[in-house]
Simulated assay, not measured.
Amino acid sequence: MKLNELHDNPGSSKTKKRVARGPGSGKGKTAGRGIKGQKSRSGVSINAYEGGQMPLYRRLPKRGFTKPNRKSWAVVNLGAIAKFIEAGKIDAKAEINEDVLVTSGLVRRKLDGIRVLAKGEIAQKVALVVSGASKAAVEAVEKAGGTLKTAEPVAAAAE
């Protein structure tokens, strides 16, 4: 094989459509924009404009409310905790708190706290201490012989 024999796989690259390059190209003269009018000109945006009529987005009433002090939880499922214990990334004998979940890589960051949900199964006896948990998750952990305590999240000092 020589340098002049190298080539890309067929279909891996597509040639760019060159508009306004003569009548023979099929996209010459007006470059597919038609004749005259606002849409044929450059630098014009007419997204929601309805010819002077009140636009739909302004005719409809505003709905809803965004709570300014809403908490956003980092969510962890019991099945994911069980997988990390089996993989040896989390020690089931020691207490599993939010810091352990972050250092193991199961959760990227705590946000306003970590909340445990009951998706998946856990067979090991574990002691979990997190900010929040669903009732089903608490029941599932206790059924496996473990404990799940919910503590108020401590605000990080320098985050």
Score class of each variant (00 low, 15 high):
G22E: 01
S40C: 02
S25F: 05
A20G: 04
Q53D: 10
G32Q: 01
A48M: 06
I35W: 09
K39C: 00
G34L: 08
G43K: 13
G28Y: 08
Y49C: 14
G28W: 02
K16P: 05
G28M: 03
Q53A: 10
G28N: 09
R18S: 15
A20M: 06
S45Q: 14
R41L: 12
S42F: 12
S25I: 02
Q53I: 02
V44H: 14
N47Q: 09
K17A: 03
Q53F: 07
I35E: 13
I35T: 14
S42C: 01
G32W: 08
A20C: 04
S45M: 08
S42M: 10
G32E: 09
A48E: 03
G51V: 08
R41F: 04
G22V: 06
A31M: 05
I46Q: 13
A31C: 04
G37S: 06
R33I: 01
K16G: 05
E50Q: 11
A20L: 02
S42K: 15
N47G: 15
Q38C: 08
T15R: 12
K29F: 11
K17Y: 00
Q53N: 06
A20I: 02
K17P: 05
G26D: 03
V44C: 03
E50L: 08
G51Y: 10
G24M: 04
R41G: 05
R21T: 11
R33E: 01
A31Q: 08
K36D: 03
K16I: 07
I35D: 12
S42Q: 05
V19F: 14
N47S: 06
K39M: 02
S25L: 03
K16H: 09
G34S: 08
K27H: 12
A48T: 09
G24H: 03
G22L: 05
A48R: 13
K36P: 00
K29N: 15
R33W: 02
N47K: 10
M54R: 14
Y49D: 13
G22S: 00
A20K: 07
Y49P: 04
S40F: 02
I46C: 07
G37V: 08
K27L: 04
S25P: 11
Y49W: 11
Q38H: 12
K39F: 01
G22Y: 00
N47P: 00
G51P: 13
K17G: 00
G37H: 05
V19M: 10
P23W: 03
K36M: 04
M54T: 15
T15G: 02
T15P: 07
E50N: 06
Q53T: 03
